[in-house]
C-alpha cells in the first residue's frame, strides 16, 4: 500500500486526526467521569470543588439517601414496565404493519404505505395530540403511555424494506405446505430477521427508557411517573420529595449536589452498562436508520 515514505506533512495530518479523536473522547467522557466521582464524594468536597476525576472523601451516602426514597423505586419499576411492555408492543405492531406492506400481491400495498408514511412528514402538533389523548380517556393511565408512541412509521418502512429483501421462494414453498400468512410471518420471516429486530427493539427501548415529555404531561399520579420525570423534578425543578427532605438534616433547604449526581447516575446507569455489550446493535441500528433505500 505504501509506495513511498511518509512526508512530514503526512505525519502532521495523521497526528491531527488522532488529536481530534482523542479530544472528542475526552470531551465526551469527562462529564460521565465527573458524575461518577462527584456522586461518590463527600458533599463538602464537591462544594469546595476538590473533585475532578476521582472521588474525594469516598462515601456512598448519596446513594443510600436516594435509595431510601421510596418514590425512586416506584418510578424505576414504572420505567421498566413502560420500557419492556412498550417495546414488546411496538415491535409486534411494527412487524404486523410491515409484513402486509411488503406483499405485492396485496391490493392495498401502495395506498396503505402512503397512509403510514404520510404521518412521518405531517402531524397535528402537540396540542391536538394532547386534547386527543384527553378525549380518548388516556390521561393519567399506564395504557396511555404504552399506546401513544406504539408505532414509529420510520421503523415500519425499515422493516418493510427488509421483508421485501427476503426471497419470495421461501414464502411460496411454505404456502405449498399449507402455511398461512401468520405462520409465514412468525415461523419464517421473524427468525430470518433476528438481527434487525434486535436493533430496532433496542432503539424503541432506549426511546422509551429516555422518554419524559409526554409522561410528564399525561401523568399526574405520583405512582405512575417514570424515573426520568422524577429526575426532572429532583434536579431541574429542585422539587424535594418528602422522603428525601426528611432524610436530610433539618436545616438544609436544597438537595445537596451529591444526591442530585447520584440520582442522575441511577437513571443513566442501565444505558451505560448495557451500551458496550449491545454496541453492535446500536451501530447497525444507526446504519439502517440513516441509509434509506
Amino acid at each position: 500500500m505504501n509506495y513511498k515514505k511518509k512526508t512530514p506533512g503526512e505525519h502532521i495530518y495523521i497526528f491531527v486526526c488522532y488529536a481530534i479523536i482523542i479530544l472528542m473522547c475526552v470531551l465526551t467522557l469527562f462529564p460521565f467521569f465527573y458524575l461518577v466521582a462527584a456522586s461518590f464524594s463527600g458533599a463538602t468536597a464537591v462544594m469546595r470543588n476538590e473533585v475532578v476525576l476521582w472521588p474525594v472523601d469516598f462515601t456512598t451516602k448519596a446513594y443510600t439517601v436516594v435509595m431510601k426514597y421510596k418514590g425512586i423505586w416506584m418510578a424505576y419499576a414504572n420505567t421498566i414496565f413502560y420500557t419492556v411492555a412498550g417495546t414488546t408492543l411496538s415491535v409486534l405492531m411494527t412487524i404486523l404493519a410491515a409484513y402486509p406492506l411488503s406483499k405485492s400481491r396485496w391490493a392495498w400495498k401502495k395506498p396503505m404505505g402512503l397512509f403510514i408514511v404520510f404521518t412521518m412528514w405531517f402531524s397535528g402538533g402537540m396540542i391536538p395530540f394532547y386534547l386527543n389523548m384527553k378525549n380518548l380517556h388516556l390521561l393519567n393511565t399506564r395504557s396511555g403511555i404504552l399506546l401513544y408512541g406504539a408505532i414509529s412509521a420510520f421503523y415500519v418502512i425499515i422493516f418493510r424494506t427488509h421483508f421485501e429483501s427476503i426471497p419470495v421462494a421461501l414464502e411460496e414453498s411454505a404456502k405449498l405446505e399449507g402455511a398461512n400468512d401468520f405462520q409465514i410471518l412468525f415461523k419464517i420471516m421473524v427468525p430470518l430477521s433476528k438481527p434487525i429486530i434486535a436493533a430496532i427493539a433496542l432503539y424503541y427501548a432506549i426511546d422509551k427508557w429516555n422518554a419524559y415529555f409526554w409522561e410528564m404531561l399525561l401523568l399526574s399520579d405520583e405512582n405512575l411517573i417514570p424515573v426520568q420525570v422524577l429526575l426532572q423534578r429532583i434536579v431541574i425543578n429542585s422539587q424535594l420529595g418528602q422522603d428525601i427532605a426528611k432524610s436530610l438534616s433539618p436545616g438544609e433547604a436544597t438537595i445537596p449536589n451529591t444526591i442530585k449526581y447520584a440520582a442522575i447516575m441511577i437513571t443513566t446507569m442501565p444505558i451505560i452498562v448495557i451500551y458496550p455489550f449491545f454496541q453492535k446493535y446500536f451501530v447497525s441500528g444507526a446504519l439502517v436508520g440513516s441509509v434509506k433505500e
Partner: peptide, 18 residues
Amino acid sequence: SQTISYLPHFISSVVVMS
C-alpha cells in the same frame, strides 16, 4: 473511540440537561 463517540446520543435529555 467510535463507540465512545455515539454514547451521548443515547443519554436522555433530562440527564444531559441535569
